[in-house]
Design a protein around this nucleic acid. Structure first.
Lengths: 367, 367
DNA sequence: CGACTTTAGCAACGCTGTTGCGTTAATACC
DNA sequence: GGTATTAACGCAACAGCGTTGCTAAAGTCG
């Protein structure tokens, strides 16, 4: 029965609108989605029934019957996101609106094993659940933003850079068994860009989250969805060469953006190198938004932002239609964890993918 | 009525299968698409009714009733594609299977005007129609692969590089009026990659067509669809910097791939530079296929192909799961024109985009 | 020749959004 | 203050998609 796709698609469309607008009315939703008002009525009724939306009074117009107003119930669905770095585990609780409700960070043992990570994760998730009165289906699941390379489609870590013990670890399956919750695993930067996309809504169609944190990476959001590539290994933007015969990089090539960036004399020079890399990305992909983040970038955030903005203004052909918004992530060091959480929400409440129908909705207790 | 999307989507799925397999059966189609056999029956009946498929006997099995076999009728729908370069206009007739049935090239006046192009185009299209007994709806329309920058969504050329007379020209609208046929305009390399995608089928999900022809560009096919970017200006891959403080480029920056490539001492050195650029693309986007083409590359085609393949083997982390297929375009100098034609076919018979419902099917005379 | 296997297709059905039209709740006018 | 006007709401019937249940058809096998 593929009519379910249509239903999910239109519901997701309305949820996306609700996320970015404070209030919704039948008429405006109909106009924006192309649906008939009657169809919108049905969708709104379903969403209210599921608890995702709630009535919020009426709008007073000049004439005629006032329109009923609806608004999102952000707390009706939440998800826990985890960011696994080489040194620490960061956990975040995020809601439907993309708001971060809580955040905890715990150190991880040096060169930790899968089991050590799972223990820390389970402890943190339990704490989070206890502290915020979380229960299914209010808790949609757990997302993990992880160091690659990994296979996102199966949730298997193929061999995380500079971590032993992580050869072909089926992290998603292990965590699902340990936590008893749905788990999604993705590369850190790809999770991160999902956070930005989820918070900014449909105008954020082609964008990158450029992260400097030990290495350099770029999570890509193309055509309104995360871009992961043929082997779900996209985003190794730091290993694009920007200086032929430049300094050697850990990856074996010479002159990688990451290596040149690392060797820069001062933060300003480093920012200029990164800015050139960003313009390369813009030339190739034509992005509308570039968001900057990462633990090693944010301390000089404004410096980097200005460097990139300057490069965009001066190095791109200066046409008035070629507008690129450059910004710092509003989520700080929580971006990746928040994005991991929002990937879980996005899988269920975001626009569905016709090629991969989503699993049936969990049984919800109706009012 | 959005049920039409479902219908079009499933029909497109079956057509895509028919393009890559010599014959179709209900059972295998059902298995591959996830539809029920009964639903496949309905889809096949509709496609036979529209003339896109035809019965092709039965399959003799070991036991049981023989399955009815269907095959694509490649000639049932065709489209004309045009490739506009600074020197010539190349026209191609392509069919549903992605086969190029005819190809003509005519020189264009130096620094030609929109009107001069339209005259050549109209003459060529008329010749093509007369020579191949084309009529609507057998002729789906005309596609134009053009030098950018341009706005693909409206078919407006914003100002083609090194061509005066091409500031904000609504080429699609002008050509539609002149030809009396639907016209789609896109950047040359994006059209080109569509040709490869249309011919290779669904396994070709994340790929690039890298073209060297005066400049360097890369048409991108990401997640099973053309990637055009926020302002439909993606693919300016040649203007990504690969050598900081390298030779100056026409675009104003220094060390662009295009500039460094052009300055190379010999074809082998040039190929090595391009290969590095391709690996950059792979690191960032994780493509499964790289196709090479372009009038300035194909004379040394095998040299370039080997250089890129060598770079992929040696410069990418050598994991067995990271497979990249490097090939030369099988369409030679017709790629862009063929792709422009296939964009027209793709718009009507390819997978539909839920965000932009396609226009109703033209009235077809039924048998 | 009858049992079995596999495919085909009719008919009723469930669910989606759509259409038509009467109802409701407000303002504007006299 | 009553009445017309306006704008939004929502019931009911409908069209079209894929699904389900079941019967018929066309082969092979013993």
């Amino acid at each position: 029965m593929h009519l379910a796709f249509l239903r999910d698609y239109h519901e997701a469309l309305v949820i996306a609108l609700a996320r970015t607008t404070p209030t919704l009315e039948r008429g405006t939703v109909a106009e924006l989605t192309g649906l008939t008002p009657q169809a919108v009525s049905k969708v709104l009724a379903r969403l209210v029934d599921e608890g995702l939306l709630e009535p919020a009074g009426v709008r007073r117009p000049a004439r005629g019957k006032p329109a009923a107003v609806y608004r999102l119930v952000p707390g009706s669905r939440r998800a826990i996101g985890a960011h696994v770095t080489r040194r620490e585990l960061r956990l975040v609780l995020a809601d439907l609106a993309g708001t971060v409700l809580a955040s905890i960070a715990t150190p991880l043992p040096a060169d930790f094993t899968p089991d050590e990570l799972l223990s820390e994760l389970a402890a943190g998730v339990t704490t989070m659940i206890a502290g915020h009165d979380l229960s299914t289906p209010g808790l949609a699941g757990v997302g993990i933003g992880m160091i690659g390379p990994l296979d996102q489609s199966t949730g298997t870590v193929r061999g995380a850079h500079r971590l032993r013990h992580w050869q072909d670890v089926p992290l998603a399956a292990l965590a699902e068994r340990r936590l008893g919750l749905p788990v999604l695993v993705d590369k850190d930067v790809t999770a991160g860009v999902t956070a930005e996309a989820w918070r900014r809504g449909t105008a954020f169609r082609d964008a990158a989250l450029v992260v400097v944190d030990a290495g350099v990476g770029a999570g890509l959001w193309l055509g309104g969805a995360a871009h992961r590539g043929a082997h779900t290994n996209a985003s190794e933007f730091g290993h694009a060469v920007v200086q032929l015969d430049g300094p050697p990089c850990a990856c074996g090539r010479r002159g990688c953006l990451e290596a040149v960036h690392e060797q820069a004399a001062d933060p300003a020079a480093a920012a200029a190198v990164l800015a050139t890399g960003v313009v390369n990305l813009l030339q190739t992909l034509d992005l509308g938004h570039v968001v900057l983040g990462g633990a090693d970038l944010l301390p000089h955030g404004e410096l980097y932002r200005e460097a990139v903005e300057h490069a965009v203004r001066t190095q791109l052909p200066g046409a008035d239609w070629l507008t690129v918004e450059v910004s710092l992530t509003s989520l700080g060091t929580d971006v990746v964890a928040a994005g991991a959480a929002m990937q879980v929400l996005n899988a269920r409440y975001g626009l569905p993918d016709p090629t991969r129908p989503r699993e049936p909705a969990p049984a919800v207790v109706r009012g």
